[in-house]
């Protein structure tokens, strides 16, 4: 039984079919990539899986739950976490608070306990803070805990976003262009990080990326979208040579007479 399975997933915006007939199957522990030219519908797939968009037809089964129609926060609670293409941290809040907010969902502290400062409140706050600091340490951000998230350099914001997603304790992690805007050194570190968190947290990862080095380097299986339609899928070596993929990215070869 796959952890995440979509069947014939389709979404229309007015007359435009952004994604059509998408079939995905990820087993626990998989690291798959989703690639395609700009506007191919990759982020739309993420938005459907996380409940931001409601698919027009098709099914999404996650961990034996039909998640279509659930609110995004309910889907997060089931164990799907994501990062965003254009970093969406809580920019005005501290680095620590960014993580603590992600830990809120699984905290066991009622509103009355918080308002009247009952022992439950102290216990949970202590636990939340400890866990948050642990995560920050893993990502090398512990010294920046009190800094405002928006003031961090770009690369660290990306790392913080991944740390924040992990704080929700997910089974499936969706990474939307994690290497966007990173320099080669940062990209290398990111690849190592992705491999490492998969092992350490026992995650299943679905990755959108334009950066071919990253996709080919870390993903075991790649799916290529173009105009919402799956044009190819398979292991990286196959994808590299696939004529339709080359056509989608570079255009059709001119047939010489």
């Amino acid at each position: 039984m796959a952890l995440l399975e979509t069947k014939d997933l389709t979404i229309n915006f007015g007359g435009l079919t952004a994604v059509s007939g998408l079939n995905l199957a990820l087993n626990t522990g998989d690291l798959h990539g989703l690639i395609g030219p700009n506007g191919a519908g990759k982020t739309t797939v993420f938005n459907m899986i996380t409940g931001v968009y409601l698919p027009s037809s098709g099914s999404i089964i996650f961990d034996n739950h039909n998640i279509i129609g659930l609110q995004p926060h309910e889907i997060t609670k089931l164990g799907i976490a994501r990062t965003f293409q254009n970093i969406r941290l809580f920019k005005g809040l501290s680095v620590l608070d960014n993580i603590r907010i992600a830990l809120h969902m699984r905290a066991n502290c009622s509103v009355p306990a918080a308002v009247f400062r009952l022992p439950q409140y102290y216990r949970e706050e202590h636990r939340i803070k400890q866990r948050a600091m642990e995560l920050l340490k893993i990502f090398g951000l512990q010294d920046l805990a009190e800094k405002t998230a928006g003031s961090l350099p770009y690369g660290q914001q990306r790392r913080l976003e991944i740390a924040r997603a992990l704080a929700t304790d997910p089974k499936l992690l969706l990474l939307d262009e994690p290497a966007a805007g990173m320099n080669p050194q940062e990209t290398k570190e990111l690849m190592a990080l992705i491999r490492w968190i998969r092992k350490e947290f026992g995650l299943t990862i679905l990755l959108i990326e334009h950066h071919m080095e990253v996709v080919m380097g870390v993903c075991e299986h790649i799916k290529v979208l173009d105009y919402g339609v799956t044009i190819a899928e398979g292991p990286p070596e196959e994808i590299k040579k696939h004529p339709k993929v080359i056509e989608a990215y570079l255009g059709e070869e001119i047939k010489s007479a």
Partner: peptide, 16 residues
């Protein structure tokens, strides 16, 4: 505070 900063991100982090 998360709701104030960014509602989409707040939902994605499990805040109703």
């Amino acid at each position: 505070g998360a709701v104030k900063e960014d509602e989409v991100a707040a939902e994605a982090m499990g805040v109703g």
